[in-house]
């Protein structure tokens, strides 16, 4: 199983998101990540959906998405063949960071601020696999993560 990204351009209507997620559910996909937002044209939305599967499954599901009346355009690509980013907002326990250097090893990480003494806030902008790696890296260095909020992947 590999990660595939489905990029869909749709009309910005209520219910489109529900049709998408309903389809994925009934075709027995667990959504790895899904983001949606307006474009420069407020009538048009752009979806980035990440699923786990093989190429055949990804192409099949893309064709089903294409069949929705409100879907204008669909592309399907392998995750590692596409430019993608994910944002994380992270709070870690300040006194668990014994060596501040661990926060600067990954280039996508920015230390935003120290909050009221005992928490540090980080912002991570990176590929999702790098984000996973950073998460593991902090755990390996006994950094106590209080909160980790991920935006889901966006890709072009």
């Amino acid at each position: 199983m590999e990660k595939y990204v489905i990029l869909a351009v749709t009309e910005n209507h209520p219910g489109v998101l529900s049709r998408m997620t309903g389809l994925l559910r009934r075709k027995m996909f667990n959504i790895d990540s899904l983001t949606v937002g307006k474009t420069t044209n407020p009538r048009i939305s752009r979806f980035t959906i990440v699923i786990l599967g093989n190429e055949k499954q990804a192409r099949k599901i893309a064709r089903n998405i294409e069949n929705f009346i409100e879907v204008i355009e669909v592309h399907v690509m392998k995750m590692d063949e596409i430019v993608s980013r994910e944002i994380s907002l992270v709070r870690v326990k300040a006194d668990s960071v014994s060596d501040p250097e661990v926060l600067f090893v990954f280039p996508g990480v920015e230390v935003k601020e120290r909050l009221d003494g005992d928490e540090i806030e980080l912002e991570v902008i990176d590929r999702d696999d790098q984000t996973d790696n950073f998460m593991q890296y902090l755990l390996d260095h006994d950094v106590l993560v209080e909160k980790w909020v991920r935006s889901g992947v966006i890709a072009v």
């Binding site: 209520p14 219910g15 529900s18 049709r19 309903g22 009934r26």
Partner: peptide
């Protein structure tokens, strides 16, 4: 009813 029928219609309107 639009929600209920979502997987069984070609399209729907509210």
């Amino acid at each position: 009813i639009v929600g209920i029928c979502e997987p069984i219609v070609k399209h729907s309107y509210f």
